[in-house]
């Protein structure tokens, strides 16, 4: 596990550099076991930085989320670098953003965190409800050790681990300037067994399944906003001309929204699982993304977010691409 003192020391060095304007990391949350994003602009702020298995957010999202209102006349934009802490999965978002030319590599200082898995906060809070004062979660071997309200509890990691971590292929960041810990060996494989059952069902059963999920959607768009790959300045969901998706919330528009969201991530989703994590009504959004992920891998032998030299999946083709369904 990352040495917190080392992490702060590195962060202090980085944010003290003249060519770095901002460091995005994690700090403890406002209650219980939560951790939240931290935006460090000066060396004094580094003391609050942490990295624990509670650091679930994918901070790569913030690189493409910044809103830039018009500058006052004569003002120069601050083009200095942004430093960002990334886990293995998060680092793939950086790679994919660069594949899509969202920014240049030298715009970033990447602090890589080899990661052996984060928790599913919903599971933690369901297991230990009502914890208000700051609790801590650390990884010890095959267990998570949770300390709160003067107590210490040991829980087998598998019981609290986030689903995405149970099938993580890339625990060590694929891109980094400074690695904060030793590499973590791949500890899991992804056989897509989680969606196999649904894939095997009849179309009627499939629609019944999704219709119930989609009918819950309140269209808060947190899944879009949290996604590091959803960064169009002018999203079709907000377009009024033409109206792709109506704003009314019903099964038709909700389905259209979920098709659009998932399709726009085809060959781009890097499996960080943030969409499913933030959904307030627990729509299993990753089951949508993973269908594409699986098909893309199967059909085109393509995994997004691995190399900055890659070409975006749908901006390329092979003459040999399968076409068995085409008449």
């Amino acid at each position: 596990m990352v040495d917190q003192a080392k992490l702060r020391e590195v962060a202090r060095e980085v944010i003290s550099r003249e060519d770095v304007r901002l460091l995005i990391g994690y700090r403890p949350g406002t209650y219980g076991f939560r951790a939240r994003p931290a935006f460090v602009e000066s060396a004094e702020q580094v003391e609050e930085l942490v990295f624990t298995p509670a650091c679930v957010s994918n901070l790569a999202s913030y690189l493409v989320l910044e809103e830039k209102p018009p500058l006052p006349r004569g003002a120069e934009p601050d083009n200095r670098k942004v430093a960002v802490m990334v886990k293995g999965c998060d680092s793939r978002a950086l790679v994919q953003q660069m594949v899509e030319k969202a920014y240049e590599r030298d715009h970033l200082v990447v602090l890589g965190i080899p990661c052996s898995g984060v928790v599913d906060m919903a599971r933690v809070e369901a297991r230990f409800p009502g914890v208000l004062s700051a609790g801590s979660i650390i990884r010890e071997g095959d267990d998570f050790v949770l300390s709160f309200d003067g107590k210490t509890e040991k829980v087998p990691a598998a019981e609290l681990l986030a689903d995405k971590c149970k099938r993580c292929r890339y625990p060590t960041p694929l891109v980094s300037d400074i690695m904060l810990d030793d590499e973590v060996e791949r500890f899991a494989e992804d056989d897509f067994s989680d969606i196999a059952e649904l894939e095997g069902k009849s179309v009627e059963e499939k629609w019944a399944y999704w219709a119930e999920k989609f009918s819950r959607c309140i269209r808060c768009y947190s899944c879009r906003n949290v996604c590091p790959m959803c960064y169009c300045e002018d999203c079709i969901l907000d377009r009024l001309k033409p109206v792709w998706m109506r704003r009314s919330v019903d099964i038709s528009e909700n389905t259209a929204f979920h098709i659009s969201r998932a399709y726009h991530l085809a060959g781009r989703c890097i499996q960080c699982g943030e969409c499913a994590r933030v959904c307030p009504v627990d729509i299993p959004l990753m089951e949508l993304n993973r269908k594409f992920y699986k098909d893309v891998e199967e059909l085109y032998d393509y995994e997004p977010g691995l190399s900055t030299e890659a070409t975006p999946l749908l901006s390329t083709f092979s003459v040999e691409d399968r076409e068995d369904f085409i008449l």
């Binding site: 939240r36 994003p37 935006f39 309140i218 808060c220 768009y221 947190s222 949290v226 307030p280």
Partner: peptide, 13 residues
């Protein structure tokens, strides 16, 4: 507001 994603959770809920 630095961490805000700009989603509608806090208002819709």
């Amino acid at each position: 507001s630095a961490a805000c994603l700009g989603c509608g959770i806090c208002t819709y809920l």
